[in-house]
Design a protein around this nucleic acid. Structure first.
Lengths: 358, 358
DNA sequence: TTGTAAGCGTTATCAT
DNA sequence: ATGATAACGCTTACAA
């Protein structure tokens, strides 16, 4: 534990002061050489750099710099649950990409955090040296994260979640978008229509969506998209999937299509992955899409694995959402006022919807 | 910019010294109340906490703490290329999950960094307050990252990459594993076999793998897995995919299967996604798997979208790889010696391989 | 159990 | 263009 116990390879790392001394300048001058805040004569500049190279000095210690500056250059992104589940959702990835872009103007890094403080341990959120926080899909237990963040007085932006008073949030027009694609289906002339929804709550139970289950549902996105569809077809039957995946779409699709008598002529899926599964299920049953069954999705991601089909879907600006969040964070950090932003989806006609067969 | 210009909401945040003063104790005592390093009488403890609550003090400033301690509690993970592409690879996600687990004993957070320093800007790697670094898929340009890291004297672990002397690395038995699954196919009696490989280099050009292209290839994983397969079938024809995805698998599969005369009876895919695509291509052509065509994958991920099939594949311990990296980092940070670890894949028989039809 | 004191390595301000 | 000086907010021997 004592320095002397170490191999010898740690003779105390050189500091800026060491470099300055070796170069025969003051620490402040040396500092300026690295930060570039002020003009420095070419001569001294080179002397300092040479001394640094000589001493193996790799630049200012970020910890000291961040204490002094009051900035660490790190923004925390709090994801719900396991990283695994978070990144399984294909919209998360472009969103994260957009976020890093939006943050780029700050030169900030992204610290990934989960919102579950594992086993009595204090949430890393309360001890991480971050300048700001982005909360994603802030529901239920994310409130705890929010409390910590507010306690620390950190700037925070929430994506797809309700954070209450004065906190900038990035939202999507889920209900309106769902209504729009549903109207498209209605205009094609479909009358027997059903929906496949995302999970209703964290239990992720599959099955027929009853009023009862709806009352206990906690996932806003699901509710909003269903509400939008029911704005068009008030009695729209729906079945909830266990997750947003192709396989769950297959299961739901099979359930909806198995009975040739009650079989719908169109299915509205709440995500593209679910839609892909429904298509698969339909084709397995010998139904042609869109001749025998129209299928609509939601998200507008690149779906890997539905072959020649182009999904009719609502394209959500996932990357833009992330970028917007990043930009609002950047603004707050610059002391500028930040605002909530609302994004809208865009209808994209594909080859998976058509008028019902006569 | 001056404090007075701000709304008033920033009357200087309370510091530990403020809290101590308010509680009538010394700063060190107050410090100890928060860190829990030493026993403190219940009475003072409560007085300090009360004072903290009163002043809205949310705990020690992590920046100051990390300067003092010489630790930031953050480990950087450097991914190749865009986050987008990194997270498109389904093995990355469990690996990241394992990594966070392995790091959990440290209570460290994970800072996501890309290895491409965007446009002349200094790589965040050189200015981020991190305690250690994990390099993933360190090839070519990641050498630059490695240089920075070594310059800063940070502990580093490399996953699936060669970092040279004395740097712990986490590797996989790609060649041996590829040979194993190839032997399985050979033992089933297949003689007309072909391979679908991962990209050969960052150009990601699709097509027949010639000796020429092979000589210029830069992606180790691809080369190792191909070498393993050719240990069994020395003349194994191969076609390279543009990426590890189902759609690219379809393309490659179609290319290999289109000619009924030369059509192989078994296809070895270098990833499960590619295998799924090959299966899709086969079924599109009216071939049954495994009766008319055997398909083997690699990775052992959950493939979303191949319906009833269970892929015959080599299961790689992705999460374990990540966890191991995390643990080695933890050891280095504790001053213990770290070591390189080599992982092996496990053969998993599925329903997609069988003896060729007679 | 509590207090004293000495930094941790920078950067910012203000002279010179 | 350069330098002196004072923080930044905390932790941790060590002393009491």
């Amino acid at each position: 534990m004592t320095p002397s116990a170490l191999p010898q390879s740690t003779p105390r790392r050189a500091t800026l002061a060491d470099v300055a001394r070796a170069a025969g300048v003051s620490t402040s001058t040396a500092s300026v050489v690295f930060s570039g805040t002020t003009r420095v004569s070419e001569a001294t500049r080179e002397r300092v750099l040479a001394a640094a190279a000589e001493l193996g000095y790799a630049g200012p210690d970020p910890r000291a710099a961040s204490l002094r500056r009051g900035r660490s250059g790190i923004v925390a992104v709090v994801l719900e649950g396991q990283l695994r589940t978070a990144f399984l959702d294909p919209v998360t990835i472009p969103m994260m990409d957009g976020l890093t872009d939006g943050l780029a103007s700050l030169g900030a890094g992204v610290l990934l955090l989960r919102d579950e403080p594992g086993e009595g341990e204090v949430s890393a959120l309360s001890t991480a040296p971050v300048d700001a926080v982005v909360l994603i899909g802030c529901s239920g237990r994310a409130r705890a994260s929010l409390e910590i963040v507010r306690g620390r007085g950190l700037p925070v932006v929430v994506i797809e979640g309700d954070a209450g008073e004065g906190i900038p949030q990035i939202t999507l027009d889920n209900r309106e978008a769902a209504a729009e694609i549903t109207r498209h289906v209605k205009q094609l002339g479909h009358e027997r229509v059903a929906a496949v929804t995302l999970p209703l709550d964290s239990d992720r139970i599959r099955g027929r969506v009853t009023d009862d289950r709806l009352a206990r549902a906690t996932i806003d996105v699901t509710l909003e998209r269903l509400a939008g569809a029911r704005d068009v077809y008030p009695d729209l039957p729906a079945i909830s999937a266990g997750s947003s995946s192709i396989d769950d779409g297959v299961i739901a699709g099979r359930a909806l299509l198995s009975d040739p008598v009650t079989r719908p002529t169109a299915i509205l899926a709440q995500s593209d992955l679910l839609a892909a599964g429904v298509i698969r299920a339909a084709e397995d049953l010998g139904l042609r899409v869109p001749e025998d069954l129209s299928v609509a999705g939601f998200d507008g991601i690149r779906v890997d694995g539905i072959g020649p089909h182009m999904l009719t879907t609502m394209v959500q600006p996932a990357a833009e959402k992330g970028r917007a969040a990043g930009e609002q964070v950047a603004r707050m950090l610059r002391g500028e006022p930040a605002s909530s932003l609302h994004f809208t989806c865009r209808f994209r006609a594909g080859t998976t919807t058509a008028a019902p067969a006569v």
